[in-house]
Amino acid sequence: MDEEYDVIVLGTGLTECILSGIMSVNGKKVLHMDRNPYYGGESSSITPLEELYKRFQLLEGPPESMGRGRDWNVDLIPKFLMANGQLVKMLLYTEVTRYLDFKVVEGSFVYKGGKIYKVPSTETEALASNLMGMFEKRRFRKFLVFVANFDENDPKTFEGVDPQTTSMRDVYRKFDLGQDVIDFTGHALALYRTDDYLDQPCLETVNRIKLYSESLARYGKSPYLYPLYGLGELPQGFARLSAIYGGTYMLNKPVDDIIMENGKVVGVKSEGEVARCKQLICDPSYIPDRVRKAGQVIRIICILSHPIKNTNDANSCQIIIPQNQVNRKSDIYVCMISYAHNVAAQGKYIAIASTTVETTDPEKEVEPALELLEPIDQKFVAISDLYEPIDDGCESQVFCSCSYDATTHFETTCNDIKDIYKRMAGTAFDFENMKRKQNDVFGEAEQ
């Protein structure tokens, strides 16, 4: 370990593993360490099931009705991949897709007046949907046509809207959309967690709705994908990429100290040895004095023996409960997957309800979601602090990732990755940087 590296990475969460992969592909010498004996950090999948019970201090362990412990891979952080989103792009560019198998999530649902409705995925579904009345549908269709044709580089498509100054509230007004449709559009399509976006320039919202539609167009059922064997497969896929390009991995490796000289990182000390480096990437748990708390998320993992009611017996789905429907500031989400994804025993389902904490009784906040899941065989409640770095790391060369937020997709995580890359490399992130180099010394032969 007593060696000189360009970059040392602490923690094998998804953000850290993707950055480690990119740095290795770009010719950097990388050492990647984790104090845990497993990959994934906060974003790991726990197996066998006995391990999950232990982690949540349920000492009696799983009953026999849960089947074989080894058949379970339970995500600690519930997220899906947008089919046309940035993480899929990263997987394709790096060819990490060859280590993973994905399934399309069967449906996306939205909560309205105590019931759940399928988010329409085709024009026919939209016309048949009970989510809105006849005239509302016509106006909504006009709005969707506007979004589909919108091109930020072609003012002819703006229809009198200025993407940089017109607020989204004004765009909704222009198409005369009612409150329910606005809730549905902002939260189930643009996937905002709160209503803060309404008074911001509309460009980002329009682009988010386009991303949803384009992702949906790829597979038809929903815009989301999920990897077989759980999300823990993602960091491992990128760790393989890093290793192929010469990255060194050490799990179960305690970090005793991060060594600084004149305010700059110069190395990491572990078990009496020092590895030197020019730059350091880590998750917040490794540098508690360089991060601040930015809120909390509650996630309740529920094991069920039945599909969720009114989802047409889907073996995977997402449910969004827009905040307006339950008098909150932030949406509540449910991600459900099952034995069909090799993450649970035969006939079992895993539904994870999550939201940003707003009160001193977080469990009560998630109740509307839990009511949709009854009866629940077993619950595991996790309340996590969200951390963000206190500075950009440019001076110390210590670059810290943000905690995983309450969103049900990876777009915010990818933004964090691109942002850290830019601060480390001094140049904007470009997907081309992730391409495997042809015929290089570490390149794998085609399968």
Score class of each variant (00 low, 15 high):
Glu3Lys: 09
Ile8Gly: 01
Gly13Tyr: 02
Gly13Cys: 03
Thr15Ser: 14
Glu16Cys: 02
Glu16Val: 00
Glu16His: 03
Cys17Thr: 04
Ser20Met: 08
Ser20Cys: 14
Lys28Glu: 06
Leu31Val: 02
Asn36Gly: 14
Pro37Asp: 04
Pro37His: 02
Gly40Glu: 02
Ile46Gly: 03
Thr47Pro: 04
Lys54Ser: 13
Leu59His: 06
Pro63His: 07
Arg68Pro: 06
Gly69Arg: 09
Asn73Tyr: 10
Val74Ile: 08
Met82Val: 06
Asn84Ser: 11
Asn84Asp: 10
Leu87Ser: 02
Val96Phe: 09
Tyr99Ser: 06
Tyr99Asn: 00
Leu100Ser: 07
Val104Phe: 14
Phe109His: 15
Tyr111Met: 01
Ile116Ser: 07
Lys118Pro: 04
Ala126Val: 07
Phe135Ser: 08
Lys137Glu: 02
Lys142Phe: 01
Leu144Trp: 10
Ala148Leu: 09
Asn149Lys: 00
Asp151Ser: 14
Pro155Met: 04
Glu159Val: 12
Gly160His: 04
Thr165Asp: 12
Val171Glu: 14
Asp180His: 05
Asp183Ala: 05
Thr185Asp: 15
Leu189Gln: 03
Thr194Asn: 05
Asp195Val: 08
Gln200Trp: 11
Glu204Val: 07
Glu214Trp: 02
Arg218Cys: 13
Tyr224Val: 04
Pro227Leu: 05
Glu233Asp: 09
Leu234Thr: 01
Gln236Arg: 03
Arg240Ile: 00
Ser242Thr: 02
Ile244Asn: 12
Thr248Met: 11
Asp257Trp: 08
Glu261Trp: 15
Val268Ala: 03
Val268Ile: 14
Lys269Leu: 08
Lys269Trp: 13
Gly272Arg: 07
Glu273Gly: 11
Glu273Ala: 11
Cys277Trp: 02
Lys278Thr: 09
Arg292Cys: 11
Arg292Gln: 10
Lys293Gly: 06
Ala294Glu: 08
Gly295Glu: 12
Gln296Arg: 11
Ile303Lys: 13
Asn310Tyr: 11
Pro322His: 00
Ser330Gly: 05
Val343Met: 03
Ala345Val: 08
Ile352Cys: 13
Ala369Leu: 03
Glu374Pro: 00
Phe380Met: 02
Val381Ala: 08
Asp385Ser: 14
Asp385Phe: 03
Leu386Thr: 14
Tyr387Asn: 02
Glu388Val: 07
Asp392Gly: 11
Cys394Arg: 12
Cys394His: 07
Phe399Leu: 07
Ser401Arg: 04
Thr412Asn: 12
Cys414Val: 15
Lys418Ala: 09
Asp419Glu: 00
Tyr421Gln: 06
Gly426His: 15
Ala428Val: 12
Phe429Val: 11
Glu432Lys: 08
Lys435Glu: 07
Arg436Leu: 08
Arg436Trp: 15
Gln438Lys: 00
Asp440Phe: 15
Val441Phe: 11
